[in-house]
């Protein structure tokens, strides 16, 4: 989902964090470098990582090749290198489901897979399922049924529900609950999440 600019043309929260991070990094190294680029909007120069390997990923239909150290998780590659920030980094230990993405058609925790291990695979994130203008039926039902409170777990839940409906477009409540067993909402909006999922299943419009 594009979150580059708000309606008033102000910086989005993420753009602000990214820009101020670059400024801090620039000022930190300024003392040791002869000429430091202090322009906040300049692309950060990443030194070639030691032991980096090429990783090819197809994300939401678009092919990418990244040079990554083997220790980089799929989640960090998506968020930090491709700016695909739908999958969230919450527990980073495969406990919460906030980072759930589809890999080759199956839901996985992106935090518990090395990016290099996902080499040549197809990744689908919540961004690839729909846009604010053209939402998928599941996204639409989450909005309609107010299936979120703080919204942080929502991309993971939408992805898990997507996986369930992909397998059985008219999934039952029981199948939906089992399909979402690996996702946690700390606000506790489970009832509305499941209401939205059931509504999507009853719509007869697939995943």
């Amino acid at each position: 989902m594009p979150e580059e600019k708000s309606a008033k043309g102000e910086l989005s929260r993420r753009q602000f964090i990214r820009a101020s991070g670059a400024a801090v990094a620039a000022s930190t190294v300024a003392g040791t470098l002869i000429s430091a680029n202090t322009k906040a909007d300049a692309a950060p120069t990443v030194p070639a990582a030691i032991g980096a390997v090429d990783v090819s990923l197809k994300v939401n239909g678009k092919a990418h090749t990244l040079s990554l150290q083997p220790r980089v998780t799929l989640l960090d590659a998506l968020r930090e290198r491709l700016q695909i920030t739908g999958p969230k980094r919450i527990c980073d230990r495969g406990n919460c489901g906030g980072c759930t993405v589809m890999k080759d058609g199956k839901p996985i925790y992106a935090c518990m897979m090395l990016a290099v291990d996902a080499h040549q695979s197809e990744i689908l994130t919540v961004e690839g399922m729909g846009t604010p203008e053209r939402m998928s039926v599941i996204q639409e039902k989450f909005v309609e049924h107010d299936g979120l409170m703080c919204g942080f777990c929502t991309p993971g839940f939408v992805t898990s529900v997507h996986a369930v409906l992909q397998k059985n477009p008219s999934a039952t409540m029981d199948e939906i609950r089992r399909g979402c067993a690996g996702n946690i909402c700390r606000c506790g909006t489970f009832n509305r999440v499941f209401e939205a999922a059931v509504a999507a299943a009853r719509s007869g419009r697939g995943a």
Binding site: T100, P107, M112, M113, R178, G182
Partner: peptide, 9 residues
Amino acid sequence: IASPQIRNV
């Protein structure tokens, strides 16, 4: 075992 996301991997 665990969750669908873990069983898939």
